[in-house]
């Protein structure tokens, strides 16, 4: 079955919504079916969209103030008492500031605490580099027991939140501040650990996580005009990685591109490099942030500047393909 894409995907009228809005709805929906779900926030309740849960279940909402270390460690204690705690803040602060507490009291302690990092990536915009979290994927995916999910749009964020609520594991969910296009539909599948082929192709595999998947769809359309037939795969779960789906496509196309709004070192691109170099040494081009911080600016302007928009990715990929031989099994 092919993945149902938003029919308005390439139209100028494509609907935009912040990914975090889907999280807010998903958490409230999860709370309706499971009364053990509780929510904690570090003074950013509306910003992280946790207010929807707070207003629906005031008794199950805990305000901890601007104290991210306490945020996750109190959650660890709540989990020991049988609760399923969702903790939210900006990704720069959680998991940015409280990594050791997450390591010891959540992942080594193996409690199903959910870390919700909003405002990840350079698309945070004017707030600048301090608030544009780029290292969260690396910080979270290196932890044993941790599940890492970066939903592609608000519809998927809602599904991902509900799935994470019931997975029984320490989990990180990465959200963005800015409105981004919706490329999936209510009917599109989401399962933790699964990657989805959005467009089939033979010349190159484009792997996207988070909102960058939309930019890859755009890039694929531009590449088509140059006779390049790209396969686009959406990888919302960064850990555990859907090795089978990624390797199957890499085997077919012989060239892989990864794209993320994060540091490629240790990030999504890093995880793809690890997979390919061990299992199928396919030439890899990583789109993302290369050992540098972001800066203030308008979100779209920054995405363009750092080469993360579809119209920047397309020529980059085209040039790379022209100079890169496909992987051959007889290597």
């Amino acid at each position: 079955m092919s993945y149902p894409l938003n029919p308005d995907l390439y139209s100028d009228d494509v609907k935009y919504e912040p990914i975090r809005a889907g999280f807010g709805r998903g958490l409230k929906a999860a709370g309706e079916v499971n009364e053990n779900i509780v929510a904690l926030c570090a003074d950013l309740t509306e910003s992280t969209q946790m207010h929807l849960f707070r207003d629906a279940f005031p008794k199950r909402f805990i305000e901890v103030g601007i104290a991210e270390q306490n945020l996750v460690t109190v959650a660890s204690g709540l989990a020991r008492a049988g609760k399923i705690p969702f903790t939210s803040s900006y990704a720069a602060f959680s998991p940015g500031r409280n990594w050791e507490q997450i390591r010891t009291t959540v992942t080594l302690n193996n409690q199903p605490v959910k870390i919700v990092g909003s405002h990840a990536g350079v698309s945070v915009g004017p707030d600048g580099a301090t608030h544009q979290m780029l290292e969260d994927i690396a910080l979270m995916r290196v932890l044993p027991n941790m599940v890492v999910v970066a939903p592609g749009d608000s519809i998927e964020a809602e599904k991902a939140t509900r799935a994470i609520a019931e997975n029984g594991k320490p989990s990180y969910i990465r959200l963005a501040r800015e409105k981004t296009p919706i490329f999936s539909t209510e009917e599109s599948p989401f399962e933790i650990g699964k990657a989805y082929v959005l467009k089939e192709g033979n010349d190159v595999t484009l792997l996207g996580t988070g909102a960058l998947t939309y930019e890859l769809l755009k890039a694929a359309k531009l590449l088509e005009e140059h006779g390049i037939d790209a396969e686009v795969i959406h990888v919302p779960t960064i850990k555990p990685l859907d090795r089978e789906a990624i390797l199957k496509s890499a085997r077919k196309t012989g060239r892989v591109v990864s794209a993320e709004e994060a540091q490629v070192a240790g990030g999504f691109g890093g995880s793809i490099a690890e997979l390919l170099s061990e299992a199928l040494p396919t030439p890899l081009k990583r789109i993302g942030m290369y050992d540098r911080f972001g800066e203030s600016g308008a979100p779209a302007e920054l995405m363009e500047h750092f080469g993360l928009s579809g119209n920047k990715i397309a020529p980059e990929v085209k040039t790379w393909i022209e100079h890169t031989a496909k992987y051959h099994q007889e290597f």
Partner: peptide
């Protein structure tokens, strides 16, 4: 609980105590 790195036990205990008292 799991502990070693200092300073987190009071929070963990507080989370549990919050659960007993309010939830």
């Amino acid at each position: 609980n799991t502990s070693g790195p200092l300073g987190s036990g009071l929070s963990q205990a507080s989370g549990y105590a919050y659960s007993l008292q309010y939830l």
